[in-house]
Amino acid sequence: MGDTMRTEKKNSKKKKSAAFVAAGVIGLATAGGAYAYWTSLGGGTGTASTRAGASNVFEVTGNAATSMFPGDTAQTVTATVKNTGTENYKLQGVKAFITTDKQGCDGTDYKINGAAAPTNATDAVAITVTQADLAPAATTTGTFSLQFNNKATNQDACKGAAVAITYIAS
């Protein structure tokens, strides 16, 4: 029986030593960050969209301060452009032309920036304006000169005329 006990103690010491060695190896492996893992590739799809945008979001306002007459001096008109849309829009430029409520009196009886004013959208003249990426409700301004065009012909048709400045923003 003595030999059996000695053998069991020896085996018990071997088992304990093996357990400590195994624990130490596992501990070192864990401490050193030696983890195993698989790598792979993947893919998929997603969707997005953009708004359609709106047309005619620029609102342009600007009036002449005083009534015009033959021989008057040019007055500066400030045109304010406002983004009335719900997204940002970039203002590229502004053009203008003149019409009146009197027959025989048209845009050519007035001057924009020193030249006879155009009378329709096709011939509208560019005015100086600050190009800008306008956020909703943001504004930018532009200026131009407006004056009565004192022609060598009778311009009585323009007496009391309501002059409309039509702006085209893009």
Rank of each mutant, 00 (worst) to 15 (best):
M5H: 13
T7C: 03
E8N: 14
K10G: 03
A19Y: 00
A23K: 00
V25A: 15
V25S: 08
V25I: 13
I26N: 01
L28P: 01
T30V: 15
G33N: 14
A34C: 01
Y35M: 11
Y37I: 00
G43H: 10
A48F: 10
A48W: 05
T50F: 12
R51C: 02
R51M: 04
A54K: 09
G71L: 10
G71Y: 08
Q75H: 02
T78Y: 08
N83L: 03
G85T: 07
T86W: 01
E87C: 06
E87A: 14
L91R: 12
Q92F: 10
V94F: 01
V94G: 03
F97Y: 15
D101S: 07
D101Y: 07
Q103I: 00
G104Y: 00
T108V: 13
Y110P: 07
T119I: 08
A124K: 11
V125Y: 03
V125C: 01
A126S: 14
A126G: 09
T128F: 04
V129G: 00
A132H: 03
L134E: 04
P136N: 11
G142I: 07
T143S: 10
F144L: 10
F148D: 05
N149H: 08
N150S: 15
T153A: 15
T153F: 06
Q155F: 02
D156T: 10
G160L: 01
A161S: 15
Y167C: 11
A169P: 03
S170P: 02
